[in-house]
Amino acid sequence: MKSTTLHLELTVAIREMQERIAFYEDMKAYNQLFELLSDGIFRFTYSLVKSNEVAEEIVSDVFIKLWQIRDRLPEIENLKVYLYTIAKNFSLNYLTKHYKNTVISLEELDVESVIEFNGPAEMCISADLIQQIRRIIRQLPPQCRLIFQLVKEEGLKYKEVATVLDISPLTVRNQLAIAIRKIGEALPAYLQSDFTVINRFSPS
């Protein structure tokens, strides 16, 4: 429930920036939008191209494109999805060029996931377990991993992920259920309540 409210607030905020950029060429709104979305788009792009430099350039290209089409921004219904989609297309274009023009599609692409588990301080999960979960995520099929990342890390809704990746919302739903089941099954049945509890931010 809470995540839905957050998502709505964010959507409204993005919509407002979108209009300020379109009607006033408001650079402050443009910068805000960049700060808000570029990190997520960067992680997504990085997962596809697997290079920091290339990913940064693509993110920058995406936002240059945004500025170029600022006149048409009011017509775009979901800007976040739109920007992720451009990022995906730019990434696939880059890969196609980079790999001697063999057309690359998402299905055949290996994906490097950027998923973090730096949880809140009360997180009762050991370092070993985190390693194990990472391993599980690495072993998920590429598409499943990407879906997991877009939903968990970037906060996209199922329908949004479906639009970005050009798949059906039902696939997103099923793939995410698979990811959660794999992780869930690996978790211990009891909370570990002793000093093996770790928090990555405060080495104790």
Binding site: R43, N118, M123, C124, I133, K152, I183, L187, P188, L191
Partner: peptide, 19 residues
């Protein structure tokens, strides 16, 4: 217990904001 762990795992987002 699993549910609790899953929830706290899910909440922990990308942390290195400075990157």
């Amino acid at each position: 217990a699993k549910m609790e762990m899953l929830h706290s795992l899910w909440k922990g987002g990308p942390a290195d904001k400075n990157r």
